[in-house]
């Protein structure tokens, strides 16, 4: 049976009727049309669906919508200003950290959390910080470089 939840997503309040097994990923993509958050595995294995929930990075595919009543969610669409990219987005573009790009939005959300926790991370901290996000194109090399660049921006 459906139940109503209230969520604040990227600053906008939404009331959404969800099934008990609806995930936050499903809410974002299917109810709110926020397509930046990607489904890669539905099992917490790839990180493509990473968003911020009350300021913490989570796998939205592993988060039941009913468990996050009244929470604040930030997705990739909530990053950056109207005509300005977030420094991480900018660095991902300029460092060539984007190839197929399917992991990119989740990777940036994880990196955003990493830099919030540790504004000047060393390389080892960056590599462990993004170890829950898979990328199959880049070997992570330019992703790590982009995060370093953003940290120094």
């Amino acid at each position: 049976m459906k139940q109503l939840i209230t969520l604040e997503v990227n600053g906008d309040k939404h009331e959404i009727a969800v099934e008990p097994d609806t995930t936050l990923l499903g809410v974002l993509r299917e109810h709110l049309g926020l397509l930046g958050t990607k489904r890669g595995c539905d099992s917490g294995g790839c990180g493509c669906c990473t968003v911020h929930l009350d300021g913490r990075a989570v796998y939205s595919c592993m988060t039941y919508a009913l468990s996050i009543q009244e929470c604040k969610v930030t997705t990739i669409e909530g990053l950056g200003a109207e005509k300005e990219l977030d420094p991480l987005q900018d660095a991902f573009v300029k460092e060539g950290a984007v190839q197929c790009g399917y992991c990119t939005c989740g990777m940036i959300m994880t990196a955003k959390q990493l830099l919030a926790d540790e504004p000047k991370p060393d390389e080892d901290t960056i590599r462990h910080g993004i170890a829950g996000n898979l990328c199959r194109c880049t070997g992570y090399h330019k992703i790590v470089e982009a995060i370093k660049t953003a940290a120094n921006a």
């Binding site: 926020l34 990607k38 990219l85 573009v93 060539g96 790009g101 990119t104 939005c105």
Partner: peptide
């Protein structure tokens, strides 16, 4: 060293994927 034309869209939402 040219910036990829699609990188900008991919960092803001990557809406062009068939998915």
């Amino acid at each position: 060293r040219v910036l990829r034309a699609d990188a900008y869209e991919k960092v803001i939402n990557g809406k062009g994927f068939p998915v």
